[in-house]
Design a protein around this nucleic acid. Structure first.
Lengths: 161, 161
DNA sequence: TACTTGCCGACTGAATTAATTGGATATGGA
DNA sequence: TCCATATCCAATTAATTCAGTCGGCAAGTA
């Protein structure tokens, strides 16, 4: 999972829309001012957000963008996936185990990056736009102890993949 | 937290040292061969690892690098911090809240990136080199439910809830 | 001495991010 | 109808970072 300002901009902008109310067209120029992001760059991001079905738009004067779903139903992972496309975290090419090429240590770390990617995805899937607006995010970080417990106790969900 | 091949290379190389035994000098040229990483690039990484006190070295023939501590006492977070230096995940400059400049929505997302960084750090701190060698990594991913609130119908953590 | 290895700094190619520029098309209101 | 305001669209650029290269020097061993 890439964690760049690109994804952060997108989340900030989406939170901005959410704060402005339901199905009210919000002009990107306003968002740009409030969030301190260049208008043209926002346009590129929203083209992707729209392509992913997260927002709708109206052209012309009094036009703008608005959220398709309620903030409670928009997960942060959806937003970042829309603008950052690539989710791969393992060193192995193509996500296939074949990429490890038979070397030992790299295959050992394979599990690590795999699990880290899952960890990040679980987190970003657990947080909605509404959680952000209502400041319910702090204190969510957690991790299971290494491998001694029964698999049934795991809280992890099989990430989208 | 940056998650690039840089950190992955470093972890792979450290796992390689760990697998070779305690305080045995391992030449980087051997590590480069086994892990498929360019020697010169490895040298740069190990300069940082040494500066951080994770490895020691001996020059000359039969020289090489070895781990200062036991694999069980070396956490992945230490390795990545050593080579990637920067851990900042918030959009706010300098890690200071002042970077938010009074805009509302960016400050809202501040908590999110803060917590995500904490999540990643908790995970990478919970895993040691020994865990990797003994393949105890899978199943550690987890997350707490969002901050105390009346439970609604939404599924935060997937089917396991 | 010859060889191996760590050490050091400057440089380069490739990729990506972030942003810019210059338009075209649609819409509502004066 | 005209015009300001918007989304839309494509191409280009500037800056950054990653990943890797290159050449040479220092130190230790046989």
């Amino acid at each position: 999972m890439k964690l760049t300002t690109k994804g952060r901009y997108a989340v900030s902008a989406m939170a901005d829309l959410a704060a402005m109310g339901a199905r009210v067209p919000v002009a990107l120029s306003d968002v740009a001012l409030r969030q301190g992001i260049s208008l043209s760059y926002l346009e590129q991001l929203f083209a992707k957000l729209k392509r992913s079905g997260l927002v709708e738009s109206a052209r012309g004067a009094a036009g703008g963008y608005w959220l398709v779903n309620a903030p409670a139903d928009i997960r942060i992972a959806d937003i970042i996936a829309a603008v950052d496309e690539e989710i791969r975290t393992t060193a192995c090419a193509g996500g296939s185990v074949l990429g490890c090429q038979g070397t030992t240590a790299r295959c050992l770390t394979h599990d690590l990056w795999d699990e880290l990617g899952r960890q990040i995805e679980i987190f970003l899937n657990a947080v909605s736009l509404e959680d952000i607006l209502k400041k319910r995010v702090l204190g969510m970080a957690a991790v299971n102890a290494p491998n001694e417990q029964s698999p049934d106790e795991r809280v992890y969900k099989g990430a989208a993949e």
